[in-house]
Nucleic acid binder design. Structure first.
Length: 113
DNA sequence: TTTATGACCTGAG
DNA sequence: ACTCAGGCCATAA
């Protein structure tokens, strides 16, 4: 299953997002090697295990919208210092995560495992 | 096989 | 600056 590997990458990427910052589904999908997989990324997260310790709350839509039916997400982000705008979206102008190349290379396929 | 449904994205207007 | 239609892609019915 290819999706499994995609999901794996997504998880590893999310683990890299620092507090106070946020990544978008499309961004993650792209970094995972699936430029048009934004939607799939969302799907992966929606089914992701709840208690894996990963900072799922640091993933928002490209417009900065938080997850529907999960108001707590905003609180978590604000506690870390993330900035929100009047319209209730994350201010990506400030909080968008910009990964360094070095970190990304760590993620590169490890085929097995 | 076809249709509906999302934790989506982008370009128009 | 915001809304929307159309495009996108895997899954479920």
């Amino acid at each position: 299953m290819k999706l499994k590997r995609f999901a794996e990458k997504i998880y590893r990427l999310i683990a890299l997002i620092p507090p106070g910052k946020a990544a978008t589904y499309g961004q993650l999908a792209f970094l995972a090697g699936e430029p048009r997989g934004a939607r799939m990324a969302g799907q992966v997260l929606s089914r992701a295990p709840e208690n894996s310790g990963l900072p799922y709350h640091r993933v928002v839509s490209a417009s900065g919208r938080t997850v529907p039916h999960w108001p707590e997400q905003r609180v978590l982000l604000e506690q870390e210092g993330a900035v929100f705008r009047e319209n209730g979206t994350v201010d990506l102008k400030i909080c968008l995560w910009k990964p360094r190349l070095a970190e990304l290379q760590e993620i590169e396929d490890k085929e097995g495992e």
